[in-house]
């Protein structure tokens, strides 16, 4: 039997742990984050930076082989803190937890880039920084799978690539292409046909 489960709210309850550390002033950190969010306050941000940056640097240094990468983690994390501070909700958790999430996500994406050469920045989909929300510029960049298509086109033999790109991307007619490439019209037509057959196979079976 297919049981339709009601979609439960993904709200993360603010778990008060007993291990709250005495030497972190959580109220102060939250206040600074709110000042950054509401007033774009640079002084509050500087306080946050001085508190977090050296620690982020130390943690990143243990995960990345070179110093430039650990600086990148600091720069990226703190820049996200500056630009996304309005997504922080003090009712849902401590400032440290939120900044940790931002840092972990930046680290994950950078490690994936270093190891798998993938720049897909998946972290915010895996560990959402704000519930049910995505940053606009990251949303569905390749919704129509055009990157995939372009990559497959680039894998075609040069002669076929020229024809496909001319016809589909530059919207030249087959006659124009024949003139432009100084080839008989029949050649253009057959190259296009060959290329399309290959694309079909590629797009259907790619990565199997």
């Amino acid at each position: 039997m297919v049981v339709e489960q009601t979609k439960l709210p993904t709200g993360v309850s603010h778990a008060k742990s007993n291990g709250m550390n005495e030497n972190i002033d959580h109220t102060q950190l939250s206040e600074w984050l709110n000042q950054v969010a509401d007033k774009r306050c640079k002084i509050a941000f500087t306080h946050l930076f001085k508190f977090f940056a050296p620690k982020i640097q130390r943690i990143a240094r243990s995960k990345f082989p070179n110093e430039a990468q650990s600086h990148e983690v600091v720069q990226e994390t703190m820049s996200n803190v500056w630009r996304k501070a309005h997504l922080f909700d003090a009712n849902k958790g401590a400032a440290t937890t939120w900044v940790y999430t931002v840092m972990r996500n930046v680290t994950f994406d950078l490690l994936r880039k270093v190891k798998s050469n993938r720049e897909d920045n998946l972290s915010d989909d895996i560990w959402p920084i704000a519930e049910g929300a995505v940053t606009e510029d990251q949303a569905y960049e390749d919704h129509l799978e055009s990157n995939q298509l372009l990559r497959v086109i680039d894998a075609l033999p040069e002669a076929q690539q020229q024809v496909v790109k001319g016809f589909y991307l530059m919207e030249m007619s087959q006659e124009q292409l024949a003139n432009h490439l100084n080839l008989p019209l029949g050649t253009i037509k057959s190259r296009l046909r060959l290329a399309l057959a290959k694309l079909k196979v590629q797009l259907g079976e790619e990565n199997d």
Binding site: I59, G93, T96
Partner: peptide
């Protein structure tokens, strides 16, 4: 997950 995140965050930034 929320609890673990809070703990590891606390530990990371002390």
């Amino acid at each position: 997950i929320a609890q673990l995140t809070e703990q590891v965050a606390e530990h990371s930034f002390e």
